[in-house]
């Protein structure tokens, strides 16, 4: 297990490095520099600005300088929010998105695994059709439709939860729930399919032939294999939830990462875009790593390869 984990961790940095490189060059190759749109800037001033941000240097020099900067965990100054560094902006937005994401992750796991397992165990019953019907709706109805309905119902109608903003613990419930739904739906479908797959395995028949109670057959013998497909979905899904949903943050007026990202991209704030890309990619890689480790925990064949 130790060797397995170390191998996975060592794979982390080369991938992150490649991502940084690819993103850096994609951004620079894309037409339009960060200050092109501001036609009013006099050429002299523009030159000065470009020098300040090393934009006057050849691309490869910029790249090397940028890598050096990154290596000391400095994401650089923001082009647009001149008074703030990218580190500060990310430091503000990311914790908010993280909290929201953790709540959403919790909801999606509870709802998704719960519905998926019930559907598999009570196959072809009301419970199965009900959960899978809801899962289909969760996948087919965009959350910018669901979220306003939730607000209408729970905040404006029942006044249980606040309709938005980021003030108290209650304010995270509705956005977290909205954000979790589509992932809960996928997890439910994957968990159901995985369980049904495992339940046809020979070793399940063996477990039943031994006279085990159905609860043990399910929980001890089927569960680990059955949730594996859902676990592999969980890596990218958790990363997506934790790095901030642009749509949900916009609807609920939440000052997270997602919003900065759109603004930054539209404003061609290249350093901020790069900062967000790096943080997002790192979070995704961390979650893929966690998933790989979970695989090892769940399946001894992976652990001992």
């Amino acid at each position: 297990m130790g060797r397995y984990i170390i191998r996975r961790i060592l794979g982390f940095f080369p991938t992150l490095f490649c991502v940084i490189t690819v993103a850096f060059f994609i951004i620079r190759v894309a037409p339009g520099g960060p200050f092109d749109r501001d036609k009013k800037i006099p050429p002299k001033v523009l030159e000065a600005i470009e020098e300040k941000y090393h934009l006057d240097k050849p691309l490869y020099v910029q790249y090397v300088l940028y890598l050096k900067q990154i290596a000391s965990f400095d994401l650089g100054p923001s082009y647009k929010y001149q008074e703030m560094s990218v580190n500060e902006i990310v430091g503000q937005g990311f914790p908010v998105s993280m909290q929201l994401g953790l709540v959403a992750l919790f909801f999606s796991l509870m709802i998704g695994l719960g519905a998926g397992l019930i559907a598999a165990i009570r196959r072809n019953t009301f419970w199965d059709y009900g959960s899978m019907g809801f899962a289909m709706l969760g996948i087919a109805i965009p959350n910018f439709v669901i979220a306003p309905i939730l607000i209408l119902f729970f905040s404006l109608g029942l006044s249980i939860f606040p309709p938005g903003r980021w003030e108290s613990w209650e304010s995270v419930i509705l956005p977290g729930f909205s954000l979790s739904l589509v992932h809960a739906a996928y997890i439910a479908r994957l968990a159901r399919a995985g369980m049904l797959d495992v339940l046809t395995e020979d070793f399940i028949r063996t477990a039943r032939a031994k006279g085990l109670r159905e609860r043990l057959v399910i929980l001890r013998h089927a569960l680990r294999g059955g949730i594996t497909p859902a676990v592999s979905y969980l890596g990218p899904a958790a990363a997506a939830m934790l790095t901030g949903s642009i749509v949900v943050e916009k609807i609920f007026l939440i000052p997270g990462m997602g919003r900065y990202f759109v603004d930054a991209a539209l404003n061609r704030d290249l350093t901020l875009v790069m900062g967000v890309v790096i943080v997002d990619a790192a979070v995704l890689l961390v979650f893929n790593l966690i998933v790989d480790i979970l695989y090892g925990v769940l399946d001894p064949r992976v652990r001992y390869d």
């Binding site: 395995e201 020979d202 028949r205 063996t206 477990a207 032939a209 013998h221 001894p300």
Partner: peptide, 12 residues
């Protein structure tokens, strides 16, 4: 059962 490779639970 016939197939000892699949009749034991690989996870336990």
């Amino acid at each position: 059962f016939q197939d000892p490779m699949t009749s034991l639970n690989p996870y336990l």
